[in-house]
Design a protein around this nucleic acid. Structure first.
Lengths: 137, 137
DNA sequence: ACGTATTCTGGAATCATTCAAGTAACCGTC
DNA sequence: GACGGTTACTTGAATGATTCCAGAATACGT
């Protein structure tokens, strides 16, 4: 299935910026808005900052993109959606990588006491040092 | 142990703003910097914005405060540190509450594959609706 | 009490992101 | 294959949380 089909299937118009954003995140996961913009502009030099933000929001709302916001870092986006995978974030350089759920099926989705909250989702973030920053430190 | 002792024990100077910040977070956990400032100013009206940020950083660096940053919300601070407890965040109003770890001892601290990262900590955030927002919706 | 390192004040600057108004483009219909 | 309406994009400015800077004030060891 092409990205064009993917967009249509989700009721979204097919535009250059949208295809370019999907393309950028296909080859590089966990990019920030600024990096997405930079990559998009290598093929579509006139794309505006807001276009990228609009596209990222539209695609995230449609479920085509997942947005993650590691504390202290700008938001990142990835195409891997639907599964409950988590992330490791490097304390040194901010690099992000995927981590599959640790213990069987979604263990963290069941908190002990919810204080009356209706819990819909759980999000796990691991913090540490990436291989590069480990050797530096 | 008084907050004064607590500060000295951690090698920090004892100042009005620091005591006031600790005091504010003693009675109300998960306050944002703006709410801390507002509460501090009820007793010390001349405290500056930056003083509060400096104090929050100093206390967090010393391990007296824990900083949490729910995606899409300004940072919150709490005095409960050292244990690995987690948080529920309301998608409606941003309210935060504590949640003890779900499954025995820190299950989420052991990811399946770390991609070479040296993992130091795991952070779990549950998303849902607080009691108030549930009835409204 | 003195002196100095640290902290606090006040104001401006930064970053990521969003808002607003006008122009351009996608795409169902003719 | 052109038309028109809706949706997306462009340009430019604004926002909110946080940080930077320089100078005045304060804590606390001597």
């Amino acid at each position: 299935m092409t990205d064009t089909d993917l967009l249509r299937r989700h009721g979204l118009r097919v535009t250059g910026p949208r295809l370019a954003v999907l393309e950028a995140l296909e080859s590089h996961a966990h990019l920030g808005a600024d990096e997405v913009l930079r990559r998009v502009r290598t093929t579509l030099p006139s794309v505006s900052v807001q276009a990228v933000y609009d596209v990222l929001h539209a695609l995230a709302d449609a479920g085509l993109l997942r947005r993650i916001e590691p504390a202290g870092h700008p938001a990142r986006y990835e195409r891997r959606t639907g599964d409950n995978h988590h992330h490791v974030v490097c304390r040194g350089c901010g690099a992000v990588d995927d981590v599959d759920c640790a213990v069987g099926h979604a263990p963290c989705l069941v908190p002990s006491s919810t204080s009356g909250f209706a819990v819909e989702a759980a999000e796990v973030t691991f913090w540490g040092l990436c291989p590069a920053c480990r050797t530096t430190a």
